[in-house]
Simulated assay, not measured.
Amino acid sequence: MPYKQYNDHELADLLKSGDQLAYAEIYHRYHAVLYIHAFKRLQLREECRDLVHELFTTLWIKRAETTFKTTLSGYLYTSVRNKIFDLLAKQKLKKSYTQSIQDFAETGFVTTDYLVRQNQLKAIIDQEIANLPARTRQIFELSRKNFLSHQEIAKALNLSEQTVKTTINNALRVLRTRLGSMMFLSF
């Protein structure tokens, strides 16, 4: 008996038992209408073609554990509908992700790169400050790191304000020379 004469229920039973000809008949009977059904929703030829082929590939691979709760055609149409929903969700996610990357590329600020450069610059400056003579370094750090005024530093170290001012100016001149004017401006 030719497979075209079998009804869907009989073809489904034969498919579950691994009958390749029954599978081929199901494919020939439904692939065109499923493609048209998908195309009406998506309007994308290649995606619809891939979707239907994927459906039939899955049908063959999972033939033994597939349960047809309604009819074979109902199962196939529901499967196509679900695959359409999955595809639309993926496209929406992809579009959203692409848009977020594009927005970031246009207006984004690369925090990690900035922090790395900032830390490198700080390390270079700290090294140059450490190379200053001990007394100069102490006065400079009290001024720039502890934010003490010239008067407060002079009082704490028992120096004149003019000595503190001259020492800080000399330290700045040395650092400006060693670090270059651009690095100094950022400091």
Rank of each mutant, 00 (worst) to 15 (best):
S143T: 12
L88S: 06
Y30D: 01
H37R: 08
R45W: 09
L15K: 03
I139T: 12
F39K: 05
L88P: 07
L21Q: 14
S17D: 08
K122D: 11
E46K: 08
A64Q: 14
F85Q: 15
R176D: 09
K4C: 12
E65Q: 15
S186C: 09
R176C: 07
Q127F: 07
N131F: 03
H37M: 05
T177F: 07
K16Q: 06
Y27W: 08
S96G: 15
T177C: 05
N169Q: 12
A154V: 05
R137V: 00
Y6C: 10
S73F: 09
N146T: 10
L148E: 06
Q102D: 15
A134G: 11
R178L: 00
Y35L: 05
R117L: 14
L15P: 02
K40G: 00
D126P: 04
E128P: 03
I61P: 00
L175P: 01
N7I: 09
L148G: 03
A22H: 01
A12C: 04
N170S: 10
T107C: 12
R41F: 05
D19K: 09
S160T: 06
T78M: 10
S96P: 13
S17W: 12
V174N: 10
L15I: 09
L15T: 05
M182S: 12
L51Q: 02
T167S: 14
N170M: 04
L34H: 04
S186R: 10
Q118E: 12
G74S: 06
Q138D: 15
M183T: 12
E106H: 11
I125S: 01
H150S: 05
A154Q: 07
N146Y: 11
L175R: 04
Y27H: 00
A32E: 15
I101A: 12
L14N: 04
H28M: 05
E106I: 03
Q5R: 15
M183N: 09
Q162G: 00
S181F: 07
T112Y: 07
F140T: 01
K4Y: 14
F184W: 07
F140R: 04
D113A: 04
D113R: 14
F68V: 02
F187I: 07
V110I: 13
Q20H: 15
S186K: 07
K155D: 13
S143R: 15
Q91F: 13
D126H: 07
S149L: 09
K92C: 08
F184K: 00
R63K: 05
I124P: 00
Q99A: 14
L34D: 02
T57H: 13
A32S: 08
I26G: 01
Y35A: 06
S100C: 11
Y6A: 06
R178T: 01
F109K: 15
D8N: 12
